[in-house]
Simulated scan of single mutants.
Amino acid sequence: MRELDETDMEILSMLAADSRRPFSEIGEEIGLSGPAVSDRVTRLQEAGIINTFTIDVNRGALRAGVPVLIDLDLPAESLTPARDQLQDADAVEHIFVTAEGDIRCYARVEAQNVREWVAGLFEEIAVNDYTVTLVDDVEWTPTIDGVEFALTCAECGNTVDSEGETTRIGGEVYHFCCSSCLSRFEDRYQQFESDA
C-alpha cells in the first residue's frame, strides 16, 4: 500500500478548494503533467480517500431562504430516523451529530414558516425539544491543511502504513495494517455472508 505523500496532500488541498479545477492546472502548480495528476486522483478514489466531487451552492445568492441552526433534543430511538429525514430535506445543508446523540443542522428555510417547516419535517418522529437560531453570517471553509492524514485498519483501527494491505471486498475498498487483520476481516465477512 502506497503512503500519501506531499504531492497527494497538495492535490487534495487544491481539490478541496475547487473540485472542478482542471488537472492540467493543478499539474502546472505542483510540477506534474495533467495525466499524472489524473492517475493520482484515481488512486485516491480507489483507496477511498476521495469519495465524491461536490459543489458548494451559495443558497443566499439564490435567495433560497433564511439561514438557521436547528438543535434537536431526541430520544435515542429517534436519532437515525431524524438524521435520515434531514438528509432528504432540500433546505438542509449540513448535519452534525453530537457525542450526546443530539442533532444540529444548518438549513435555509422560508422566514415565516421555520417552525411550521420543522414541525412538518418531524411529525412522525419523536422529538423531545428543539430550538431554532437565526444565523447572521456563515463561513464554511472545509480544508485538509494542518490535518494529519492516515488510513485506519478496517479490522482493528490502527494506522495503516506502507506495510499495510488494501483489498476490495464485496465491492468496497478496505485498508488493513497487516495480513492477519485482513484474514480476520475476510473470515468475519464470509461468515456474515453465509449467515445472511
Rank of each mutant, 00 (worst) to 15 (best):
L44N: 06
L44P: 11
L44T: 11
L44F: 02
L44H: 06
Q45S: 07
Q45P: 00
E46Q: 11
E46R: 14
E46P: 00
E46W: 00
E46I: 08
E46D: 13
A47M: 15
G48N: 05
G48M: 03
G48W: 00
I49P: 03
I49A: 06
I49T: 01
I49E: 03
I50P: 11
I50A: 09
I50G: 05
I50K: 01
N51T: 13
N51F: 06
N51A: 10
N51P: 01
T52L: 03
T52S: 07
T52H: 06
F53L: 11
F53Q: 04
F53S: 04
F53E: 05
F53G: 05
F53T: 06
T54G: 15
T54Y: 06
I55G: 09
I55R: 14
D56C: 02
D56V: 06
V57W: 04
N58G: 05
N58M: 05
N58E: 14
N58T: 05
N58W: 02
N58H: 13
R59I: 05
R59L: 15
R59C: 02
R59S: 05
R59K: 12
G60P: 02
G60D: 15
G60A: 12
A61E: 15
A61Y: 03
A61M: 14
A61D: 11
L62S: 02
L62C: 04
L62K: 10
L62N: 01
L62V: 01
R63S: 13
R63Y: 10
R63P: 01
R63D: 15
R63C: 07
R63I: 08
R63K: 13
A64Q: 13
A64W: 08
G65P: 08
G65K: 06
G65T: 04
G65Y: 03
G65D: 05
V66R: 09
V66A: 12
P67G: 04
P67M: 03
V68T: 00
V68H: 01
L69Q: 09
I70N: 10
I70Q: 07
I70G: 07
I70E: 11
I70M: 11
D71W: 06
L72M: 14
L72Q: 06
L72H: 09
L72D: 04
D73P: 00
D73R: 10
D73W: 12
L74P: 13
P75Y: 14
P75I: 11
A76E: 15
A76G: 01
A76H: 14
A76S: 07
E77S: 12
E77D: 15
